[in-house]
Design a protein around this nucleic acid. Sequence first.
DNA 1: AAGTATTATTGTCCATTTGACAATAAGTGA
DNA 2: TCACTTATTGTCAAATGGACAATAATACTT
Lengths: 232, 232
Amino acid sequence: MYKIEFDNFFTYSFSSDCIIFGFRNGEISVLLIKRAMEPFKDKWAIPGDLVYPDEDLLDASKRILFELTQLNDIDLHQAQTFGKPNRHPQGRVITCAHFALLRINDFHAEASSWAKEVAWIPIHKVPELAFDHDEILSSTYDLLKQKLAIEPVCFDMLPEKFTLSEMQSLYEYAFDTTMDKANFRKKIKSIPIKKLSEKQQNVKHRPAQLFSFDQDRFIEMVKTDHYTFKMY
Amino acid sequence: MYKIEFDNFFTYSFSSDCIIFGFRNGEISVLLIKRAMEPFKDKWAIPGDLVYPDEDLLDASKRILFELTQLNDIDLHQAQTFGKPNRHPQGRVITCAHFALLRINDFHAEASSWAKEVAWIPIHKVPELAFDHDEILSSTYDLLKQKLAIEPVCFDMLPEKFTLSEMQSLYEYAFDTTMDKANFRKKIKSIPIKKLSEKQQNVKHRPAQLFSFDQDRFIEMVKTDHYTFKMY
DNA sequence: AAGTATTATTGTCCATTTGACAATAAGTGA
DNA sequence: TCACTTATTGTCAAATGGACAATAATACTT
């Protein structure tokens, strides 16, 4: 049984790492920090820190993300846990990855605490990271791609009002492919988005129709079991 | 940064719970143990125990599963981590769920260590479990269903040699639905299974053709990128 | 031996979806 | 007005999917 009375079982600590994804200029980016302290000083890393002994994992993630990047009120979700005994040079630290998707332009991230710098870095241009963060990022990006394929999470990264071409370009980037415009539009016919009365502004060509996610219709579809998202 | 030098961060411990699924008599079952010790003595629970301070999570899961059920050499995969501060009555225990799929008849599970009894219990007939194990089981079963939909994992639970009707019944049970036999067979045309020279034995009706998973063809398809599994 | 019951297997028809590609629309700027 | 660019819609054939019918192989019954 759980031998929690044994002192030698309390020799590890537990952390949370926050992988924050966004979409901008046709690229999926991730929010990283530059470390101001050893180990891995000046290396880029996923924002993360220790969980307090009496703190819930999700609460801890939100606190840690805020402490390091000033991002507040972010809707985090759990991803994988990483626990190789030697993954942290200073001791046994098991870390639980959490991720969130957000609209980059709706937030302002700013380095604080022991973060020296923060930056949105396109996923394909991420440098080598501290600790085993390359593996954590890669595994969590895989999870994101899986979610994009079967859940309407793209709308968390797209602007509130988006064009169908923007939506398509997000999928093309994630799945590393190109799609036919006409066929993409047919494919998303069953996805609950609503046509707005507005059009794109300040473009030097025919302005595109703007759309937004139709939350009400989505909820209704889920309730009546008429919903299956398939985007691959 | 990680303040692992602070003693008060070493007041939690870490465990692994092993959710083992199998398929028998048209039902997906899970391997549970009856606890021989407090807390929750005599309650059914998911087999799990503490991870050693220098032990890898996956190694720990295999060791723990063997200690409690004598199941050896099981291919476990990580699922969700559960860490509510009060989930364990005797202290802060964060647990990482691991799951495996196996052919029930190819293994013999036997209670040992502090497990008083082990049993394969159909997923729809599981009694109330110890700790937050109801939530852990339910979340992991959801994960299983998701995997069944997009990966060829059904073959880990089906007998080595199976009939198409058995395969269909697994999906019908998991997705809680019924499918047309002819259409099911069309749907799986692209799945790498091979027709064997044998037929079903000892049935009182027309014996069905036996099939087995075609590992070679599967690997070839993955390599050449000609593989997408869609079973929903 | 013939007929019945049961499950396996295959085929057909039609509606829907998918993929490739063409045609048209609505803006800007020269 | 014309060229240029991206948006949007339409077409057609192929592939897929769902409902349902027809046939096959085995054991069991009479």
